[in-house]
């Protein structure tokens, strides 16, 4: 199957997220928790409309993709996550952008280099 031309593709939103926990969590644990939260909140139909996908995750931060205009729904579902891999956790959305590059530059790299004082969790 050929990739659709950009004009025919579904529009997307990219959420820069961070996980606040005691220990580090793995990508698999996070994914399981995200899909269980979205599934229990919206059911199967609603989850497929949200079209959530975890693109990149490392160092407790990640980029999550969702459908255009479903960002508030996805944000609400992410807020209902209480535990990841058996430990208490908060999933915090740092920001939303229309491109992966935008989300990374604006919310993930800037936080690390410009404002380290706000990242005190340990």
């Amino acid at each position: 199957m050929k990739t659709l031309p950009s004009s025919l593709r579904q529009r997307k939103r990219y959420l820069a997220i961070e996980i606040i926990t005691e220990r580090e969590v793995s990508r698999e644990e996070l994914l399981r928790e995200i899909f269980s939260a979205i599934g229990s909140l919206y059911g199967d139909i609603g989850s497929s409309e949200c079209g959530v996908r975890l693109l990149d995750f490392g160092n407790q931060k990640g980029i999550l993709r969702c459908s255009h205009r479903m960002e508030e729904r996805s944000r609400a579902a992410l807020a209902t996550i209480t535990t990841i891999g058996g430990q208490r956790a908060i999933v915090h959305v740092l920001g939303i952008s229309g491109t992966v590059k935008g989300a990374t530059q604006k919310y993930i790299s800037v936080q690390q280099y410009q404002n380290p004082s706000t990242l005190i969790y340990k």
Binding site: R73, R75, T80, V93
Partner: peptide, 12 residues
Amino acid sequence: YDIRGPRELIAL
């Protein structure tokens, strides 16, 4: 771990 940000509360 029950605290949520303002934007999350709006979404909820």
